[in-house]
Every structure is written in structure tokens, then in C-alpha cells.
Design a protein around this nucleic acid. Structure first.
Lengths: 320, 320
DNA sequence: AATCAAAATGATAGCGCTAACATTTGTCAA
DNA sequence: TTGACAAATGTTAGCGCTATCATTTTGATT
């Protein structure tokens, strides 16, 4: 028993015995069995993380933030990949909960009803990431996708573009909201046209960005700028425009979303909406840690915001 | 006991009782406690995966392959991020092994001595990925980085370039071997110059690709082509060359490594060495599954190879 | 030295499952 | 009907920890 204490709570044990124990542990190469510990204590040090994709740059940044912050702490990250499917998400939540995790970090607001019930009655701390919205399960860290894309659309209009389009691949709920933001601002400015929206259920790639732009230009050749649902599409769009000899930004403006590192390096550099993915991961894990160690975070939710980063690809030079 | 059997091994139980049990399980919402199971059985369904980076495109493809193949099986993936550090890798191996995993998938051949000892005496199946080499712990799936970069270098020479350079960021062991391959072929062809090699310990980004090319061109302005340690650098190099007005491929050839999807979409499209990352992940997990269910794979190791994909960025048109 | 509270350590039971073996039930041939 | 054997089910113990409470030790105070 004293050994158990020494290993989990060293300051509850006198330094003399502590040293003795350490020596023996070293000599024997003893490592506690987490399964036995979990069984006896009825809880684990596992923090489950559920993301819709492990390939996507956006989520890999978030994950890196989480891993960085968990590094060196007692919390053990376990990753689940829901592949954008609410059903797989539900299964993952169930699996994770059966492990009596200390906490759960998951993306978005759009869980299935069953998942929601599971989570509301779950005996662990929960951080929702990627979005801000009402009625969090517990804690929430994200930003408003609607507002972010509204700001991007306004930027296009302020830059002087008058016939903006939108391209998007696989429309997950967050992408939907970004499209809504675009539509709202475009309508308010009287420049909205449904024919300038091109989407596909296929997952987004750079190549697809080119194809979507090609589609868009054949359907609505008057289009003078696009807001892209993400940066991969934006890069593909840039390449396609260059192949067509369209001058950017003079004849055609391009704005991405997320501001991946490559956007600044492109030629011309590409305007994008910066989102704070690494910070989101870090903050989510930091909140989780402090909640688990008893100190409640300030509020139930934090909005990390966004920032439109104007670059050459929309630098038309004329104003409204 | 019959319930335990019914849940793990349904065909050891009569269909009558099985149905009864299923009904009750459903009604009660019973979910087995994995910790208790692990403790009693002395083993788990966990397959630990250790990768050096979760952000890197290369590893995220591999991970996706692993997740796809594990999907629906009883094996539970647990991911560890060693962040290119042998010490963190050692800790992860220790942590994973304390969980009595069914298997371990890890990258590369360059474990620390302690890690190697841990793994050699580990009571679980092991698949090494990313590289092929001698003396596997257990199973091995990868390709030869030396040969792949040798082929890429030969491609540059055959395309007609005569003063090839090499740029690389953070030189992990696999990158080192790629550089060696370049050097070997270049030396054999009598076109090697150490001044045309530019490296940095910083992690690679698109921006960095531009900076490295700028460095290279100021140190060795005669350079007429580069082999890039990865595709991010290649893309950055392309942009930087375009900014400088260097005509590609006529004045400067660019070859990447990995053949990320965006290489084909770029303008001009970028030559790269295709590696089979998704397949590597899938095969690794497939081998793991079959090894764990008793059917041994054919051999201890498989070489997935590579393929140079010539594109516009090296299409000089002249031949050696 | 005697007293007492606080700190440190120890004893016991049990977490929920499964391995191993024991027992019961079912099936078929003689 | 009986015995022999396989299939199905049941019994028991214990996996390696930790919660809880009991006991001992320590150290400060009278």
C-alpha cells in the first residue's frame, strides 16, 4: 500500500521510505499495471480525443496542440477517428466511455441524439473544440465559422470584387456554416448568385480545387473572385487559374480558409482566414488538465476568433 | 461465465442462450469493462502505433491506412507521438508495453539500445514501418530510402541536368539516407558538389523550401536542379523560383519526395518520388491482424518500393 | 516523562472479468 | 435403455491494484 501511495502521491510518504521504494522499483524495473489500477480505482488517466479526420491538416494541428500540452502530464491521450460519420462517432464515444476516461475532447456541435445523451450523462469532463455554440456539454473552445466566412466575404467585397463565388468539397457541418456566412454577406450586398456556388461530396484535395474552379468558370464565367472552403482548394484554384492565364488578383481573386502555412509562401501569396488550430488544441488540453485537477476554468466557453490575412491574391487595389 | 463467453466467442455458446443474453445485454445497456478484462486475461486488444509526427502528411497517410484497416476489427489503435525523439520513443514503448498490448507498430530502424532491448524481449507482435532493413524485430514493411533517392537523382541526370543540388530540413534518419542516395549517384556521375547541399535542423515547411532554395542559389548559383527531401520543400522551391523568374524546367529542375497529391496539381506539375504510404499503413495493420489471429504472414519483411513520377518540373526535353 | 494530534504506514476487501477445471445436458450408436 | 462422448454451462480462484479504515510512529507541547 505504501508503495502504491509512493508512486501516485509521493508527498504522502516520508522521504526516507520514498527513496527506499524508488531504489527497489529501479532495481526490479517495476512498472504499475494500468489495467489493475483502472479496475481498482474505477477510473483512468485516459483523455479520449475524437476527430473527424487524421489526414486533414486542420485536425493534425489541433492534435499536435493537444499532444504538446499533454506531454509530461499524467494524462494519456487516446485518439479516435470518426471519419466525418456520426455513427462512427457514437461508437467511439461508447468505446471511450467504457474505458472510464478522465476526459473527452471532441469536435463540433453536431452529435447524434444518442451520442448527446451519452455525453450529457457521462461521468467525465468534456471539451468541445472547433466551434462555439450554445449549450455546451461542459467546456467549449472554438470560433464562429459563420462569422469567419462572413468576414472573408466582406474582405472580397471591400477589395472590389463584385461577382464572388464559393467552392467547397465535402460539406461537413462546419463547412455548411461557412457557406451560410458567405451567402448571408453576399445577399446583403446584393451580389449573391447561386450559380456561383460549386460543391461536391468528395473530400477536398488540391486537384479538386482546380476542378471546382474549372466547373465554376464554365457555369458562371462572370465570377471575379472565390472564397474557398479551405486552403487546399484555394491552392488548387490558384494553379488552375494560372494554367488558364487568369491574372490574379487583377482578373480573379482567391481567398482560402484556415491559413495553412503554405498560403504565405505561394506565388502570389494567398489571402486566407487564419484560425488558431494549434492554440485550440493546446487550450482544450489545458482546460481539461485544470478541470481534472480541480481548478475550474473561467467560463464554460471561449471564442478563439479568427483573422482575415489579406495577401496578394486579393490585392485588387481598388476599394468598393 | 457463459455471458463472458457469449460476448467474446459467440460460437462457443448455444444460439438459444446467445439470444437470451443478447436481449438482456441490450436491455441493460451492458458494456464490458476493458480494464477488468485486461487484468483477468493478462492482455489487451490494444495495438500501439508510434509515429514521429502527427502533423506530417506522410505519417497522417500511414495512420489513415492503419485506422482504415483496424476499423471494424477488435483491435483498438492507440497512437503515440515520439516527435522525432528517441527518448520520447523509449518512454512511449515503455508505456505501451506496460499496457500489455497485442501489438506494436513503429517507424524506422533507429531505436535506442534500450528501446531495442525492450522490443526484442516484448511479449507482443511488432511491425516496423517506413523502411526496409536487416534484422527486423518481427515484421517489417517499408521501402529503401537510399534506393528511392538514387532513382530520383538518376532521373534528374537523365533529364539532362548536370549540377544538381539537394535541400533538406530536419534530418531524421530516413532523410539522411535519402541524402546519401543522392550523394552516391551524384558522385558516381561526377556531378557532386557539397556546396550544392543545403540543410537545416528546422522542421520542413513550404516557406522553408523557398528559403533553402534562396540559400542554395546564393551559395551555388550554377545549380540547375534540385532534389528536395520532401514535397513541402519542393513546393516552396517552386514558388521561390517563380518569384525569381527562373523558368522551370528549362533553367531549373525540381524533384520532390513522397508524391503528395498536390504535386500533380501544381503549375507546373512537380516531379516526385511516389511512396506508398496508405498501403504501408494498411499492410502493416493487415499483417498485424493476421499475425495476431494465428496465420503468419509470408515473410518477415516486404518492400513496397517507390516510383519516380516524372512531371513538368523536370521535363527538360534533352537527354544525358 | 506523559499526552495528544498529525503524519506515516499497514491490513483487508473488492474492483469485473477470465483461465482452468468441474459439472450438466444433449446426441448417437450399440 | 445404456454408455460414451461432445457440447454447453457452471464454479472457483485470482489477475494487480486502490479505497477505506485501523494501527503505529513521530514530534510538539505540557
Amino acid at each position: 500500500m505504501t508503495v502504491s501511495r509512493a508512486l501516485r502521491n509521493p508527498d504522502k510518504v516520508s522521504s526516507k521510505t520514498l527513496n527506499k521504494i524508488k531504489a527497489v522499483v529501479d532495481r526490479l524495473g517495476y512498472v504499475p499495471d494500468p489495467a489493475a489500477s483502472a479496475l481498482a480505482a474505477g477510473k483512468t488517466n485516459v483523455v479520449g480525443v475524437i476527430v473527424p479526420s487524421v489526414t486533414n491538416n486542420v485536425f493534425s494541428d489541433v492534435m499536435r496542440g493537444i499532444y504538446e500540452e499533454a506531454e509530461g502530464s499524467k494524462w494519456q491521450i487516446q485518439l479516435g477517428n470518426s471519419r466525418y460519420s456520426p455513427i462512427e462517432e457514437e461508437n467511439l464515444v461508447r468505446t471511450f466511455l467504457s474505458q472510464k476516461p478522465a476526459g473527452l475532447i471532441l469536435s463540433g456541435l453536431d452529435q447524434s441524439e444518442t451520442t448527446e445523451n451519452l455525453l450529457r450523462s457521462a461521468d467525465c469532463r468534456i471539451v468541445q473544440i472547433m466551434e462555439c455554440g450554445p449549450d455546451p456539454y461542459d467546456m467549449m473552445i472554438g470560433f464562429s465559422h459563420v462569422e469567419a466566412s462572413m468576414a472573408a466575404t466582406r474582405h472580397l467585397l471591400e477589395a472590389g470584387y463584385r461577382r464572388p463565388g464559393y467552392i467547397a468539397a465535402r460539406l461537413d457541418p462546419r463547412s455548411q456554416r461557412r457557406l451560410q456566412g458567405f451567402q448571408k454577406v453576399a445577399e446583403e450586398a446584393g451580389v449573391f448568385s447561386a450559380s456561383r456556388i460549386v460543391t461536391t461530396p468528395r473530400p477536398s484535395t488540391v486537384t479538386l480545387g482546380g476542378e471546382l474552379v474549372a466547373d465554376l468558370l464554365s457555369k458562371a464565367p462572370e465570377t471575379d473572385a472565390i472564397l474557398c472552403n479551405n486552403d487546399d482548394l484555394a491552392l488548387g484554384a490558384l494553379f488552375e487559374c494560372q494554367r488558364r492565364g487568369l491574372r490574379i488578383p487583377e482578373e480573379f481573386g482567391i481567398c482560402g480558409f484556415n491559413d495553412l502555412e503554405m498560403m504565405a509562401a505561394a506565388n502570389p501569396s494567398i489571402t486566407s482566414v487564419r484560425t488558431f488550430r494549434l492554440d485550440m488544441g493546446r487550450e482544450a488540453m489545458r482546460w481539461m488538465s485544470s478541470a481534472l485537477s480541480g481548478s475550474e476554468p473561467d467560463g464554460p466557453a471561449i471564442d478563439l476568433g479568427y483573422r482575415v490575412i489579406p495577401r496578394q491574391s486579393t490585392a485588387l487595389g481598388t476599394r468598393g
